[in-house]
């Protein structure tokens, strides 16, 4: 195989086999990105890059390509542009890939996207002309062959393309074979859904190791008991373990009059849970890094850095 081409810091660090941390930014229904830019600046010293979400849960937000460009420019933080196949057909997406490149984006994460029926414009037409695997193939053709549907691009884009994977998925066998398809399509990195179950994660990561795609483990440090509880209740398919919920609850109730101490204890509890979890997977050689999906929790990043470096 020819030497891997590198187009971004993320691509470079993955190619060098460095254990990395990526973050997540969630622009909202707004035309003013100053809050997100601020958060991006706060996590920038710790992460290699941060995902910029594309109307998650089908709830419409500012366009992710525009937000990615602005955040990257204003915060000086490399982004991983999340692009779903939900809203645009493949003709439109091919145009967006060229546009994204022209705007300086160098990493794109291929996602199916939540169905519009789940969101706040449920009567929208669901497009899904491509799927998460065929979007990867489209990007790879554009980048590696310089073609779209066999037609030449004058100045082809250069982006790395990644995918999502869900270790919680049941039946796991179907998810594994699906990752095989994404790998075949040319996927260059994988970010997983949030996991809390170590045994299941080990089983899953061991199974997909054969595809030889660097894996970033999705984690969700919980800023408060409310966050933990909300995540457990509202994110389908992910259960926050009972002992975590109990611990977070005790921090909430025991230190309700000392917010500062409460914060310190939440941060410490996250550190204590994630450190052994990640070390174990790292030791087994199953991970290329960690993807932290907790938004609005930038103060946890120095602690996560300690975990990553450990």
């Amino acid at each position: 195989m020819a030497e891997k081409k590198v187009y971004s810091k993320l691509g470079e660090m993955l190619a060098n086999g460095e254990f990395i941390l990526t973050g997540e930014l969630e622009p909202e229904k707004t035309c003013d990105l100053s809050h997100t830019i601020q958060e991006a600046k706060e996590i920038a010293p710790y992460v290699v890059a941060a995902n910029v979400t594309d109307s998650p849960l089908g709830i419409v937000t500012i366009n992710s390509m525009a937000a990615s460009h602005i955040i990257q420019k204003e915060a000086g933080l490399e982004v991983i542009w999340q692009l779903t196949v939900r809203d645009v057909n493949k003709l439109g997406i091919a145009g967006m890939i060229m546009g994204g490149h022209a705007l300086g984006l160098r990493n794109v994460l291929s996602l199916t996207g939540d169905h519009p029926a789940l969101g706040d414009m449920p009567e929208s037409k669901p497009v899904f002309d491509l799927d998460s695997a065929t979007l990867i193939r489209l990007v790879k053709d554009m980048v590696d062959k310089g073609t779209i549907n066999g037609h030449e691009i004058e100045n082809p884009p250069t982006l790395h393309v990644g995918a999502a994977a869900n270790p919680n998925s049941d039946p796991m066998g179907a998810e594994i074979l699906k990752i095989g398809r994404k790998a075949e399509a040319g996927c260059e990195f994988i970010q997983t859904q949030v996991v809390y179950d170590l045994d299941r994660t080990i089983e899953f990561l061991s199974e997909i190791k054969k595809y030889n795609v660097p894996i970033l483990l999705g984690i969700f440090p919980m800023k408060s008991y409310g966050m933990a509880k909300g995540f457990d209740t509202f994110v389908p398919g992910v259960d926050v373990p009972k002992d975590i919920l109990a611990k977070w609850k005790s921090i909430k109730t025991e230190f309700k009059d000392d917010k500062k101490e409460q914060k310190r204890l939440y941060d410490q509890a996250n550190y204590e849970f994630f450190k052994p979890f990640i070390s174990e997977l790292k030791k087994k050689g199953l991970l290329a890094g960690v993807h932290c999906m907790a938004v609005h929790y930038p103060r946890i990043f120095p602690k996560l850095m300690e975990v990553i470096k450990a």
């Binding site: 199916t112 169905h115 899904f128 799927d131 998460s132 695997a133 065929t134 049941d170 179907a174």
Partner: peptide
């Protein structure tokens, strides 16, 4: 498939069920 995907299942599947509905 609620999204008529050619390469499913998608991340919306939980315990064999679909996120839509």
């Amino acid at each position: 498939c609620a999204k008529s995907l050619m390469n499913g299942p998608c991340g919306g599947m939980v315990n064999e069920k679909c996120e839509v509905g």
